[in-house]
């Protein structure tokens, strides 16, 4: 028995290791179960138990409120994967038009990203002048230009000028309570939905697995959720 014992131990550990790997992988890539095909409100479906915070009101949204599909992104302007998701969501916006509503929620990862909060402030301040999406696009499209900068304030002021904002008002609004409150409320909503990282996207209230954020998979999920289509 002693002769075989070390080999039995080795085989047992190998079996447990492979089993644990298989279980963790399966758990991590669990698909969205029973994706609703019709209009489901963005808020209640994701977490049936416990209360879900509404987030900043009104949210920054593209597309009509009655669109059959709502994509709600929790994003951090300094997060590189969020920057990569940005052109994909622009494509979705162009392709699906009024059938898809895209909502952006602030979820700056502090202190992981040192300028994320300042970027969120800049976007919200632009929003107070009706140009949130212009600043949102500017921040994502120039992410590499500012995320390693020491002082981003002057860079963001440059963006504000380029998109035609009243610069003095932008400077004042960037540090205003309303801007802080909006970021806080979006973050609170994220936490109540158990958002742990960015980008996190909810499709009609159900979290889209991170690996399904690739454009083709996202298209397939949206098409499946549109009325009159079946996966």
């Amino acid at each position: 028995m002693n002769r075989f014992l070390p080999f039995l131990l080795i085989i047992a550990v190998l079996a447990v290791a492979l089993g644990a790997g298989w279980y963790l992988k399966r758990k991590a890539v669990a698909p969205i179960a029973a994706l609703p095909s019709a209009n489901v409100s963005a808020s209640p479906a994701a977490k049936p138990s416990g209360s879900i915070d509404p987030g900043a009101e009104p949210p920054h949204a593209l597309g009509p409120p009655d669109a059959p599909v709502t994509l709600e992104e929790f994003g951090d302007f300094e997060c590189p994967p969020c920057g990569l998701l940005h052109p994909e969501l622009k494509m979705i916006e162009r392709e699906y038009g009024s059938r898809v509503r895209i909502i952006f929620r602030e979820f700056p990862l502090v202190p992981t990203h040192s300028h994320a909060l300042a970027a969120a402030h800049a976007a919200e301040a632009a929003g107070l002048q009706g140009k949130f999406w212009e600043m949102h696009d500017m921040l994502y499209e120039n992410q590499k230009a500012w995320h390693d900068a020491f002082d981003v304030r002057s860079i963001f002021e440059g963006y504000a000028t380029r998109i035609g904002l009243d610069l003095e008002r932008f400077k004042r609004d960037s540090t205003s309570e309303i801007v802080e409150l909006r970021i806080f409320l979006d973050g609170k909503r994220g936490h109540s939905l158990d958002v742990k990282g960015t980008p996190t996207v909810f499709l009609n209230g159900r979290e889209v697995p991170f690996e399904s954020l690739a454009i083709d998979k996202l298209r397939a999920l949206i098409s499946a959720a549109l009325p009159g289509t079946r996966p």
């Binding site: 992988k25 994967p81 990862l109 990203h113 990282g197 960015t198 980008p199 991170f210």
Partner: peptide, 10 residues
């Protein structure tokens, strides 16, 4: 392998 690593996390 699941791509979780490329997401920004808290």
């Amino acid at each position: 392998v699941t791509g979780q690593s490329v997401r920004c996390t808290i």
